[in-house]
Computed example of a mutant assay.
Amino acid sequence: MTQDPGSPIVVMGLMGSGKTSVARLLSAALGRVLRDSDPDMHERYGMSAAEMLRELGAEVLHDREAEHLREALALRPAPVIAAAASTIERPELREALQAAVVVVLDAPDEVLAERMLSSGHRPHFEKDLRAMLAKQRVRRGPLFAEVADLTFDVARHKPEEIAGRVLDSLGWTAIRPIGE
């Protein structure tokens, strides 16, 4: 698989899949700007995704996440983007992703639920995280598969390995070694 080296790279997956870790490694290796929905939205709105969910509701949160991805996809030079999982549900964004390299990260629900507990910035839409993730997987899984250029199981591969395999698959050369 060879893509235009000027294409944006979008790292997607359910919460806890390690989007930020992999996107950060790719950004550094390629010398590209990183656009990550969580810190970018916190900087813009002064609230984490979890706070937006509690105070403003899911619709406002998801609208802001979609706006973030739209804006990031339009940037030039193209960045590496860690996109919120909710964005996959918007047909216009799935269409826009055709111009990007889309890397989808996944793992079993129990692995993702465990990772979600490690950070308070992630919104918990339900108390039972495994049940919440299972519902999101049913709704979003086929949509991720629709746009994915590359898919990795983060329970089996470390972020550094995933970043290296992405670059190898694309035939792109890192300007810095991965992980430095």
Rank of each mutant, 00 (worst) to 15 (best):
T2H: 12
T2I: 11
T2V: 12
D4A: 02
P5K: 03
P5M: 00
S7E: 05
P8Y: 00
I9A: 10
I9G: 00
I9E: 00
I9L: 08
V11W: 01
M12R: 02
M12Y: 00
G13F: 06
M15F: 07
G16R: 04
S17A: 15
G18T: 05
T20P: 03
S21N: 13
S21K: 12
V22C: 00
A23I: 08
A29W: 02
G31N: 05
R32F: 09
L34A: 07
D36M: 07
P39Q: 12
D40P: 01
D40R: 10
E43K: 15
E43W: 00
R44I: 09
G46D: 13
G46N: 09
M47W: 08
M47F: 08
S48K: 11
A49Q: 00
A50I: 03
M52D: 02
L53V: 07
L53R: 08
R54Q: 12
L56R: 15
G57P: 00
A58Y: 11
E59S: 05
L61V: 01
L61Y: 05
L61T: 08
D63Q: 13
R64A: 03
E65N: 13
A66P: 12
E67L: 15
L69R: 10
R70S: 11
A72W: 00
A74K: 11
A74S: 15
L75A: 12
P77Q: 02
P77V: 04
P79L: 04
V80R: 01
A83N: 05
A84T: 04
A85Q: 04
S86D: 04
T87R: 00
I88N: 03
E89S: 10
R90D: 13
P91S: 05
R94N: 12
E95P: 14
A96C: 10
A96P: 10
Q98V: 13
Q98G: 15
V102N: 07
V103E: 01
V104K: 06
V104N: 08
D106C: 04
D106S: 08
V111E: 00
L112G: 06
A113K: 03
L117D: 13
S119M: 14
G120D: 11
H124F: 14
H124A: 15
D128P: 07
D128M: 01
L129I: 13
A131Y: 08
L133V: 11
A134D: 11
V138Q: 14
G141F: 04
G141Q: 07
P142R: 02
F144T: 01
A145Y: 09
V147P: 02
D149M: 03
L150D: 11
L150C: 02
L150S: 06
T151N: 02
T151D: 02
F152P: 03
D153I: 01
D153C: 02
D153M: 06
A155T: 10
A155R: 04
K158S: 15
P159S: 01
P159E: 09
E160S: 01
E161H: 04
A163G: 04
G164A: 01
R165E: 12
V166M: 10
L167W: 05
S169L: 04
S169A: 06
L170R: 02
G171P: 05
W172S: 02
T173F: 06
I175Q: 15
R176C: 08
R176G: 10
R176D: 12
P177W: 14
I178C: 00
I178L: 07
E180C: 11
